[in-house]
């Protein structure tokens, strides 16, 4: 069953500008559509600055979308006001990338974790207390730490606090915005395993944003690849890793380190830089760097997402 559907979502930002100067328009998310099925983990992968985080935050309406639709369990939540959104806020939450900036430095851990429950008036005070301790133990913290402040914890521990806070309202849908990118590799594995265990236990649906394909491989069911504000390919994880269709996906996959040095593989090194989302290239946004470019059509016509296999969609003129 579809939990969340996004249709032609757009989020633009005005950059600069003044009295006489027109602002530049940064197209962070430009015409993105996808569905998330209940209980799955959808990975959203792409380079820095391609709009993954903006996409995740726009879905949660932390940013107001400029156009398009966000449909949650059949309800259109795109144009709901702040107060109308409140009842949906109980069902969705977010885990942040930065474990240092996302916790209020003046609140204790107990306060931070019980905050979402207080905001939504869930449970009595005593039950909340019990719930906080339960959550802390679930994410691998001890109950004695309840009165400590965020700065007394390490990055990995803080990320656990962030996860506990996200789980406090027992949400159906979580946006995990690069939850492990700021952590050491050894801690990354701990947090990823924790998230996997929690997902099995709580059964939430997750949009997992990351730039790390190894992380995607570990945790996700399906993967969407984003490039300069657009989805270029979306497929089940296995299909994507064994049979990538879009040249950009191929290039990304070829950059993932393989543990066995004897395996020979061709490495694709892309030329040029990621184009600016302020003035993205015409036609296919990848055409300037593409090594499989087929001709003029790439420069003039924007490719649509086309079905190329079971659940496998790609936006490329090759197909």
């Amino acid at each position: 069953m579809t939990l969340l559907e996004i249709q032609e979502l757009k989020k633009y930002f005005n950059i600069g500008g003044g009295l006489l100067k027109k602002p530049d328009i940064l197209k962070a998310v430009d015409n993105v559509s996808f569905k998330i099925e209940e209980g799955e983990i959808l990975g959203l992968v792409g380079e820095s600055g391609c709009g993954k985080t903006t996409c995740g935050k726009t879905i949660l309406k932390i940013y107001e979308p400029d156009s398009g639709k966000i449909i949650y369990r059949g309800d259109d939540i795109t144009n709901l006001s702040r107060s109308e959104m409140r009842k949906y806020r109980k069902k969705m939450s977010i885990i942040y990338q930065d474990p240092f900036g996302s916790l209020d430095p003046r609140m204790t851990i107990g306060g931070i974790i019980s905050e979402p429950m207080e905001v939504h008036n869930l449970y009595s005070k005593r039950e909340r207390e019990k719930k906080v301790i339960e959550l802390m133990e679930k994410v691998g913290l001890t109950s004695e730490q309840i009165n400590r402040y965020p700065h007394e914890f390490s990055g990995g521990q803080r990320q656990r606090i962030g996860i506990a806070r996200a789980l406090a309202v027992n949400p159906e849908f979580i946006v995990a915005d690069e939850p492990v990118s700021a952590l050491d590799v050894s801690i990354q594995a701990q947090i990823l395993n924790l998230m996997q265990d929690l997902q099995k236990e709580f059964g939430f649906t997750c949009l997992f944003i990351t730039h790390d394909l190894s992380v995607i491989k570990h945790i996700c069911d399906r993967v969407a690849v984003m490039y300069v504000g657009k989805i270029v390919e979306i497929a089940p994880k296995k299909e994507l890793f064994t049979n990538p269709k879009h040249p950009y996906t191929e290039a990304l996959l070829s950059a993932v380190p393989v543990p066995n040095p004897k395996i020979k593989r061709k490495e694709i090194i892309l030329e040029g830089d990621v184009p600016s989302p302020i003035n993205p290239p015409s036609g296919c946004r990848f055409h300037e760097r593409c090594f499989k470019k087929i001709g003029e059509v790439c420069e003039t016509k924007e490719p649509e997402l086309k079905k190329v296999g079971k659940g496998h969609y790609v936006a490329c003129h090759l197909y």
Binding site: I62, S93, I94, D98, G101, S102, L103, E115, P116, R165
Partner: peptide, 12 residues
């Protein structure tokens, strides 16, 4: 700051 944004996401 992100913790204020987090409050918006919670629905405070």
């Amino acid at each position: 700051t992100e913790y204020i944004e987090a409050e918006h996401a919670i629905g405070s």
